[in-house]
């Protein structure tokens, strides 16, 4: 049994419900979680940048190597006795610039040639070109560059770009992590989630699972967050009926 209920009041005076309210519960949950992750990442970035951390991420405590989570070290310490939570927060720094840069570059290239985003936008343009409102804009006397910039990119592709940027961010984190894990990315002693997983993995089978599990979960949660956000926004901003 599925229930449909009409809300009270005059329909004509009722403005269309916001897309947020009309979205399904799953979409809302996905976007909510994604926004939470983005918020956490942003806060962590600021905390890391101003150095407002639970502990000094490079201070070694030789008395407590690979200490389990507990008081003093909320997520425990790594093989050099450094505070894992602090290193996780500082590790965000490694993503931010490369991450944003990658997204910006792929966006810029997207319009001229980079495969993924470009093909999506090109498809959209192809689709819109058949729409008569583009021709109507042309007949009205709008210059072609205005039609492309305003009618195609701004009004009809802006949500697409936001979605792609979000997904691209997740992508960038994954790439950086893989590189660092393989030892090509950020180098010790600078913290990054990738090299933390890598360093911690050596002790994983000695029963010390937290030094690698904490950053691994952080990576999972963050990438999942970005993807869910992108996916949710996609369904929210690009509803089928609007196409």
């Amino acid at each position: 049994m599925r229930r449909y209920r009409e809300s009270t009041g005059e329909v004509a005076e009722r403005s269309e419900r916001s897309r947020w309210r009309a979205a399904t519960l799953t979409d809302r949950a996905a976007i909510g979680y994604g926004l939470l992750v983005v918020g956490l990442v942003a806060v962590s970035y600021v905390l890391g940048a101003v150095g407002w951390l639970p502990d000094d991420p490079s201070r070694m405590d030789m008395a407590r190597l690979n200490a389990p989570p507990g008081a003093g070290h909320l997520l425990g310490t790594d093989f050099l006795g450094r505070d894992i939570l602090s290193r996780l927060i500082v590790g965000i720094q490694a993503y931010f610039l490369p991450g944003l840069l990658a997204v910006a570059i792929s966006l810029a290239l997207g319009i001229t040639g980079a495969p993924a985003i470009a093909s999506i936008i090109a498809g959209k343009i192809q689709f819109l070109r058949q729409k008569s409102f583009i021709e109507a804009a042309h007949v009205l006397g709008l210059p072609t560059r205005v039609i492309v910039a305003k009618h195609i990119l701004w009004y009809n592709c802006a949500p697409l770009l936001i979605i792609q940027a979000t997904l691209g961010m997740g992508e960038a984190i994954l790439v950086e992590t893989s590189l660092s894990y393989l030892g090509f990315g950020v180098q010790e002693p600078t913290a990054s989630w990738g090299n933390m997983v890598q360093a911690g993995a050596n002790y994983f089978f000695h029963g010390k699972f937290w030094p690698s599990t904490a950053p691994a979960l952080a990576i999972l949660g963050t990438i999942l967050g970005f993807h869910l956000l992108g996916d949710g926004l996609n369904r929210l901003l690009e509803p089928k009926s609007a196409s």
Partner: peptide, 16 residues
Amino acid sequence: MQMIFQDLDAALNPRM
């Protein structure tokens, strides 16, 4: 000189 299109949606960008 202008045109009124057969398609009712022709003049109307759906996002505007």
